[in-house]
């Protein structure tokens, strides 16, 4: 397999990491919503923390994106 093709295949595989991050963010907000429905009064306090969790999951997704970009553009 010549290296250029391997590079693109690698970048493609790295992009799957973004999908996994999306699943992470989905579960975080899903659980937040079910918790908020069960106890609406406490929902507002935790609204910020749900976003912190989502940001952390997204951060890991960004690393997958970073790997893909490095594979594609760094010589």
């Amino acid at each position: 397999m010549d290296p250029v093709a391997a590079k693109y295949v690698g970048a493609g595989l790295a992009a799957i990491g973004m999908g996994a991050a999306a699943i992470g963010v989905g579960t975080i907000f899903g659980n937040f919503l079910s918790g908020a429905l069960r106890n609406p009064s406490a929902a507002d306090g935790q609204f910020g923390r749900a976003f912190i969790g989502a940001a952390l999951a997204e951060g890991l997704g960004i690393f997958a994106f970073l790997v893909a970009i490095i594979l594609l553009f760094v010589k």
Binding site: F47, G48, A50, F51, I52, A54, A55, L56, E58, G59, I62
Partner: peptide, 10 residues
């Protein structure tokens, strides 16, 4: 407020 917190954390 929450979104700005999220952006900062990320």
């Amino acid at each position: 407020q929450a979104m700005s917190l999220g952006f900062r954390v990320l």
